[in-house]
Write a protein that binds this DNA or RNA. Structure first.
Lengths: 218, 218
DNA sequence: ACTTCATTCAATAAATTTATTGAATGAAGT
DNA sequence: ACTTCATTCAATAAATTTATTGAATGAAGT
């Protein structure tokens, strides 16, 4: 085999992984299953696509080695194929954030138009947690909360927020988090809480980032 | 702006980076410019494509924020946009290696058919260097050697190897390295040296890997 | 001011990828 | 053995990306 021909084959194989990453819908899927193993139907519902479509994207991700499946009862549970994959996705997202100004603009646009939302960093949250100065809520769907969440967080899914406002303290700062820096549920929760007179902010990251550096989870 | 619409835009922007990575030719370019800043023509020649083509790929990489340019005299020098980018490419390559068995097969095929080539690890090389037990040659083109190389390595480009065999010691192990684990020049050099009676092995990585973890360079 | 030459742009045909639909498969429960 | 239902496969039109070519641009040197 000629060297040139070999090289072509080699880089073509390497591009299997990067091609799998090159589609927006699949990136959204990765962001979602970084929360923990979930079945196809759950994924399809949350990315707003037909199940057949979600399945095809998952096959691409699986063939590329980025995603693994495990059968549990009737369902196939899809999850990231190891921490290595999470790290790559995290780095890619960071490059997008730091090098693509349109992403920053989009986020600022969305967040500031919905009223000036404050965010809080991981370190600030840890400090306030030590002083018992915050009430931390996880606004993801309860399925994801049960797969793992920040220690001492209370599950309060965004969709249930309206009818469970009385569970929240008025005298403490309420901190909301969800799937990650791109996840909007926490933003929407904070906006709603502020409209109702609460002192609320969002954590500027989400559960996977927290877990990835081995901070306390349950 | 509706949440769904916003999410679509956001992931579409993030996919700008991953789409830039999704083409085999562009991966080859990244592997090449990880050596240091080089102009378009140099890249075109080494990836065996017309200059216009190389330029277009470089534009995609630049727009995505993965690659930067610097003007020096007549030429635009292209380089990776920071260590972050090198790390991502390195991780992606590692995922490819560990999860795509065809890549391993390809490499084994190519290497073993050309006679059983041995490789040496970074740690082994460091140990032998301390004992002054090796003669380390850099078989990349001299342009790349001059942009940076492993400390104490001697420049001996693969193309000049045949006419400069008398510079090499017969009583020491000769270790060859080039651009990285995918780079074939070191393999070809080692094969040629063994045919000529030298005790030769290749380093299982290349210059960028060495530099990335701050081992001594010149 | 003009020339040279590196680099980029623009247009296009061919190749690849995506979304969508309906049919096929195959595991779990009865 | 049969039924149910989650998941995957297959086909196809529309959309996107790639390689290729020749023209356009624009910086450096004279």
């Amino acid at each position: 085999m000629k060297t040139r021909e070999f090289k072509k084959k080699l880089y073509k194989q390497l591009a299997v992984v990067t091609k799998a990453l090159s589609n927006p819908t699949r990136l959204e899927i990765l962001d979602l299953i970084a929360q923990g193993p979930v079945p196809v139907e759950y994924i399809a519902e949350h990315i707003d696509q037909p199940v057949a479509n979600a399945s095809q994207h998952l096959q691409v991700l699986k063939k590329s080695g980025l995603v693994e499946t495990e059968r549990k009862g009737k369902y196939n549970y899809y999850q990231l194929a190891g921490k290595q994959v999470y790290d790559v996705w995290n780095s890619l997202r960071a490059i997008g954030f730091s090098r693509n100004s349109e992403i920053e603009d989009l986020l600022n646009d969305y967040r500031s138009k919905k009223s000036g939302l404050k965010t809080i960093s991981r370190d600030e949250l840890l400090r306030k947690m030590e002083e018992d100065d915050v009430y931390l809520i996880d606004v993801r769907p309860s399925e994801e909360f049960e797969l793992g969440h920040i220690k001492n967080a209370v599950s309060l899914p965004k969709v249930e927020l309206g009818e469970r406002l009385d569970e929240l303290p008025k005298d403490k700062e309420v901190v909301a988090y969800c799937r990650g820096p791109l996840c909007l549920m926490a933003d929407e929760a904070v906006r709603f809480l502020k409209e109702n007179g609460f002192n609320a902010v969002r954590l500027d990251e989400g559960f996977p980032e927290w877990k990835a550096i081995d901070l306390p989870v349950d």
